[in-house]
């Protein structure tokens, strides 16, 4: 029996015992045990990612996760006073895992990343890509939020000729694979003079069917009498949308922001097709440039990926509070 099997059996046994003694405690235990198991499975790749990014590129493939602490700081391969690259060492006996690099755990990947990097079009500092990505993602989110929620409101709360047909059309437009539309889309972007500008990425995506549909579904659940009441009070249609409806779908607004921000943050193919100047590139494109075609040196790429995770993770934490019961439902009840 393997260690893991024993561990799981002990866990299950513990749960059973708890259930017998104090059922309530047992339930909480089961819930957390499940969460911890699922959470660990989900986070495992991150542990791997973090390990890979702090390992020296020379030992990245030697250990699945981190090397044992005993070799974290191991002596370097030295000939005389010079630290010598492995393939120049004459005495092969010197070359073994423990002595190959100065220290197996270091920040070399991050240091290499956080500089004026040599690119095909001159030096560009890594922070520039972060700012590009921040701008693209936040602008796309802001535009998308405004226009999509407006559309969603109209689709949910107005009855107008062609509404159901329009909804079917919208859904249909979601289903057409982008590959088929690429060439004509490319032509439009080119004819509008959007090539190599952020307009090529922001304008076509500024209102998404996906968002309209999401807000339509969220707003459907809001009672119509709130709108009626607003009209009786003499509020204009736009004001009703802005001041009465939108505050009620705050959790969905947060979900939309998170998902749109992330979608743009990680989008890769479209910016790669439409942008050409190196300083304009967003983070994923710039990171992908670090991975070679023949020789995939992914240590530095993984370090970049780790940095790239930080802003959306902060956003996620900031949005946490929107997903806590009882904060917003009060306003619905009025």
């Amino acid at each position: 029996m393997s260690g893991l099997q024993t561990f799981l059996l002990v866990l299950a046994g513990l749960g059973l015992v708890l259930f017998l003694i104090r059922p309530k405690l047992g339930r909480a235990y089961v819930r957390y045990a499940m969460l911890i198991l699922v959470g660990t499975l989900m986070m495992l790749p991150f542990v791997w990612l973090i390990s890979a990014s702090v390992k020296d590129p020379d030992v990245i493939n030697d250990y699945t996760f981190l090397p044992p602490p005993s070799v974290w700081r191991s002596p370097s391969v030295r000939e005389g006073d010079q630290r010598v690259a492995v393939d120049e060492v004459t005495d092969q006996a010197l070359v073994n895992e423990a002595t190959r690099v100065e220290s197996t755990i270091n920040s070399r990947n991050f240091r290499d990343l956080w500089t004026d990097q040599q690119t095909p079009q001159g030096p560009v500092h890594f922070s520039r890509y972060i700012i590009n990505s921040l701008f693209l993602s936040s602008a796309a989110t802001t535009l998308g939020l405004i226009f999509s929620s407006m559309g969603g409101y109209a689709m949910a709360k107005y009855r107008f000729p062609g509404r159901s047909g329009l909804l079917a059309f919208m859904l249909a437009s979601l289903t057409i694979p982008g590959v088929v539309l690429l060439a004509p889309n490319f032509e439009i972007i080119y004819r509008l003079g959007f090539m190599d500008t952020y307009a090529a990425l922001l304008i076509p995506g500024c209102v998404s069917v996906f968002g309209i549909f999401l807000f339509r579904q969220a707003i459907l659940g809001i009672p119509d009498d709130i709108i009626e009441a607003g009209r009786i009070d003499g509020a204009g249609e736009f004001r009703i949308y802005l001041t009465l409806i939108m505050p009620l779908v705050r959790p969905m607004t947060s979900a939309f922001c998170l998902i749109t921000f992330l979608g743009t943050w990680n989008s890769f193919l479209a910016p790669n097709i439409f942008l050409q100047s190196q300083p304009k590139l967003p983070l994923p494109v710039a990171l992908n440039q670090l991975v070679g075609v023949y020789d995939q040196q992914y240590g530095i790429y993984l370090a970049g990926t780790l940095i790239a995770i930080v802003p959306p993770a902060i956003l996620f934490f900031a949005l946490q509070r929107e997903f806590i019961s009882g904060l917003t439902s009060g306003s619905v009840k009025q």
């Binding site: 959470g39 986070m43 994923p284 790239a308």
Partner: peptide
Amino acid sequence: AIFSPNLVGQV
């Protein structure tokens, strides 16, 4: 933790 896989890109 459960949302985290969405934070990373396809590559």
